[in-house]
């Protein structure tokens, strides 16, 4: 609705625009969503017999996960670069960086697919142990977040972005910044998931 103020420009006394405040509040609720699962993880780990989590954790594939970590970090930096390119009015670079981000996200999913299926091939399922249960739940929810993010990214990589670029450059930059915040958050979650699931 065109009559809603502060969609793009900052409100003087708060220094924020609506969508940025909105996405941070959304991220706050996401922190609590993953927070509930983290809390469950720690609770279950403490309640479990000693060494149980460590034993099952050692069955996970660390090199694959390390590679995945690097993929997500890369996608994060290209995400922020694509935003910077928009700010520098370099639309082609924007598309390139966003494309790399999407590819990294897709590669992450592919690696995750191989990780999951190799577990299933070895007869390891969520019902195999508490650790595996929480591992599949946490990473599964994270994968859902990646998929959701990718859908948005693909939308902004599609022809739609050319249209927005021609119509309202600031709006596109704002949308990319917001999407970026979400994407970095998904990366952030993985940064914590990686050590607690794979390394400890």
């Amino acid at each position: 609705m065109s009559n809603i103020p502060y969609i793009l420009e900052e409100r003087p006394d708060t220094g924020l625009n609506n969508s940025k405040l909105g996405v941070w509040i959304f991220l706050a609720s996401e922190v609590m969503l993953f927070g509930g699962l983290f809390s469950a993880y720690v609770f279950l780990r403490i309640a479990a017999p000693e060494g149980d989590f460590g034993y099952w954790g050692s069955k996970l594939n660390v090199p694959m996960a390390t590679f995945n970590t690097l993929l997500l970090i890369t996608s994060s930096v290209t995400m922020v670069m694509s935003w910077a390119s928009l700010k520098l009015e370099q639309f082609d670079k924007y598309k390139m960086y966003l494309g790399i981000t999407i590819l990294c996200g897709l590669a992450f999913l592919v690696v995750k697919y191989f990780e999951y299926t190799s577990k299933f091939d070895h007869g390891i399922y969520p019902s195999s142990s508490t650790f595996m249960g929480i591992y599949f739940t946490l990473t599964g929810l994270h994968v859902l977040h990646i998929i959701g993010g990718l859908l948005v990214l693909i939308f902004f990589w599609s022809k739609q972005s050319d249209k927005m670029w021609n119509e309202d450059k600031d709006l596109l930059a704002n949308r990319i910044e917001i999407t970026g915040l979400y994407w970095h958050f998904v990366d952030l979650v993985w940064i914590f998931l990686f050590p607690i699931l794979y390394l400890l």
């Binding site: 405040l21 706050a28 927070g35 809390s39 609770f43």
Partner: peptide, 21 residues
Amino acid sequence: AIIWLLVTTLVAFLILLFIPL
């Protein structure tokens, strides 16, 4: 404003993490 929002969230998260523990 954003910093305060996140600090509040962090406090809530720590409560959720530690009290059950």
